[in-house]
């Protein structure tokens, strides 16, 4: 049947053939398991057991019941996850934008700086987390050595229930910074210089340039980053499991996230049904937040 096709058709067919490979990847590795998890979430799915009885929404009901208990791990996990997003996303974006604006201005060693900021992003999160776990050490950790050298009181960081979450979120912000900077730089390059020139002729100062020209024209980039980084912080897992003792999201559940709790439910307690139900809940939350962000933040800017 192929030989009857024209060259154009044949080329198209090849193109589709190549697209098929990533498509297959997404179907088999991403979308397939996601749909499968929906099935798991409505069953009592003990991973070691051959029988997986259908239980309807019982897993969801249980999560809801646990959630109403303010001391439960589920409650803490959701609270912490939102804390990670609320602290992490704005801080990271403001820092990244500030650094990107400065990098945009300099002409020498730009690529060196870009590389320095980008390296953490391409380094293994587990490796980074272990290094920071060591840096945060009480007594002999470098940060505490620095603090005591400066005559400041030593901090417990990861062992303090009030500081642990902030300590972890700081690492996540730092690690993701490079990515946000690169995206911002790309966005800044897109803004035509003539708008700035026109604004300067009209007598706009630097602040007005930023406020009236840069930020509005950067809106698509900002929306993209807010959405992407929110999802990233909503799925916090590796940093927490690596930086807390025995990966328990401690001390006293002060750093546990929804994904970590899900993992412990599924693989520690073998309750895959309940873990999958949590996944579905988190999926719905991420979807709602993303849609809300896209709707609320997107502004059409025309000059």
């Amino acid at each position: 049947m192929f030989k009857k096709l024209s060259l154009r058709r044949r080329q198209q067919l090849w193109a589709y053939a190549f697209i098929l490979i990533p498509l297959f990847f997404f179907l088999a590795i991403r979308i397939g398991p996601t749909l499968f998890a929906l099935n798991v979430s409505v069953r009592e799915w003990n991973i070691l057991s051959p029988e997986k009885p259908f239980v309807g929404l019982a897993n969801f009901e249980r999560i809801w019941q646990d959630f109403q208990n303010p001391k439960s791990v589920v409650r803490r996990a959701f609270q912490n996850t939102f804390s990670y997003v609320i602290i992490g996303v704005p801080t990271q974006l403001v820092l990244a934008l500030a650094i990107a604006l400065m990098l945009d201005r300099i002409t020498r060693l730009v690529s060196l700086f870009r590389a320095i900021y980008f390296i953490p992003f391409v380094t293994s999160t587990v490796a980074i987390s272990w290094v920071w776990r060591w840096m945060y050490q009480p007594r002999f950790g470098p940060i505490n050595l620095l603090l005591s050298f400066l005559g400041l009181p030593e901090q417990n960081f990861l062992r303090d229930p009030d500081q642990a979450l902030l300590s972890i979120v700081a690492v996540a912000i730092w690690q993701g910074l490079g990515f946000a900077i690169i995206i911002f730089l790309a966005g800044l390059k897109q803004i035509p210089q003539m708008y700035y020139e026109a604004a300067r002729i009209d007598g706009a100062n630097r602040w007005q340039l930023l406020r009236r020209v840069t930020l509005p024209l950067l809106n698509p980039t900002i929306v993209y980053l807010v959405v992407l980084q929110s999802i990233r912080f909503l799925r916090m897992f590796t940093q927490v499991i690596t930086m807390t003792r025995q990966g328990d999201g401690g001390p006293l559940n002060s750093t546990v996230t929804v994904v970590l709790h899900m993992y412990r439910e599924g693989f520690g307690r073998y309750k895959m049904g309940s873990a999958a139900a949590l996944m579905v809940v988190l999926f719905l939350i991420i979807m709602m937040i993303t849609l809300a962000q896209m709707r609320l933040l997107t502004r059409r800017v025309e000059y």
Binding site: N156, R159, D160, P161, R245, D248, G250, P251, L252, N253, G268, R269
Partner: peptide
């Protein structure tokens, strides 16, 4: 469930020492 049992004592100890 050994790990949850242990976790309960770890948390109790942390609560005493850290808070």
């Amino acid at each position: 469930n050994e790990s949850d049992d242990r976790q309960a004592l770890m948390d109790a100890y942390d609560a005493v020492q850290l808070t």
